Simulated scan of single mutants.
Amino acid sequence: MGDHFFRKLWQGTAPLVLWASHFFFCYLYAASGCRRETWAVLLGATLLALAGAGWLAWKAWRGGGEASLGVLHMARLGGAILALAAIAWSAMPLLVFGRCG
């Protein structure tokens, strides 16, 4: 019984953990200094995080079926959509400020 709880908990929170990891990495990396490769690394991390969140959203969308009105399904889908928006929003400084030095 305990295994199912933690598996379901992870399924519901995985998109938000992905966003938080992306956010933490980007700010930590950007704070470490502006180097020539900073923009490319942050862009790569953002594209990877967007792909991961998109995959989680697609997986949640496909996993509907009879349980499409369940709380877990709504948490998975809502969390994935929220993560996509949050990762895209966190990437706005890359587009606005462009490359460093």
Score class of each variant (00 low, 15 high):
Gly2Ile: 14
Asp3Lys: 14
His4Trp: 09
His4Glu: 05
Phe6Glu: 06
Gln11Arg: 09
Gly12Thr: 12
Ala14Tyr: 01
Pro15Asn: 02
Val17Gly: 00
Val17Arg: 01
Leu18Tyr: 01
Ala20Glu: 06
His22Asp: 02
His22Glu: 02
Phe24Arg: 03
Phe25Thr: 04
Cys26Phe: 15
Leu28Met: 04
Tyr29Phe: 08
Ala30Leu: 02
Gly33Thr: 05
Cys34Asp: 01
Arg36Gly: 13
Glu37Ile: 12
Trp39Thr: 02
Ala40Asn: 15
Leu42Ser: 03
Leu43Lys: 04
Gly44Asp: 09
Ala45Phe: 05
Ala45Asp: 03
Thr46Leu: 15
Thr46Val: 07
Thr46Gln: 04
Leu48His: 03
Gly52Pro: 00
Ala53Gln: 02
Gly54Cys: 08
Trp55Lys: 12
Ala57Thr: 06
Ala57Lys: 02
Ala57Gly: 04
Trp58His: 11
Trp58Gly: 03
Trp58Ala: 13
Lys59Pro: 00
Lys59Gly: 03
Lys59Leu: 10
Lys59Ser: 11
Ala60Tyr: 05
Trp61Glu: 06
Arg62Leu: 11
Gly63Tyr: 15
Gly65Leu: 09
Glu66Leu: 12
Glu66Arg: 08
Glu66Gln: 10
Ser68Asp: 04
Leu69Ala: 03
Leu69Gly: 15
Leu69Cys: 10
Gly70His: 11
Leu72Gln: 08
Met74Arg: 12
Met74Trp: 06
Arg76Gly: 13
Leu77Trp: 12
Gly78Thr: 04
Gly78Val: 15
Ala80Ser: 04
Ala83His: 10
Leu84Ala: 07
Ala85Asn: 01
Ala85Met: 11
Trp89Pro: 07
Ser90Phe: 13
Ser90Gln: 14
Ser90Tyr: 06
Ala91Tyr: 04
Met92Phe: 14
Pro93Met: 14
Leu94Tyr: 11
Leu94Trp: 11
Val96Gln: 11
Arg99Cys: 14
Cys100Gln: 08
Gly101Ala: 14
Gly101Pro: 10
Gly101Phe: 04
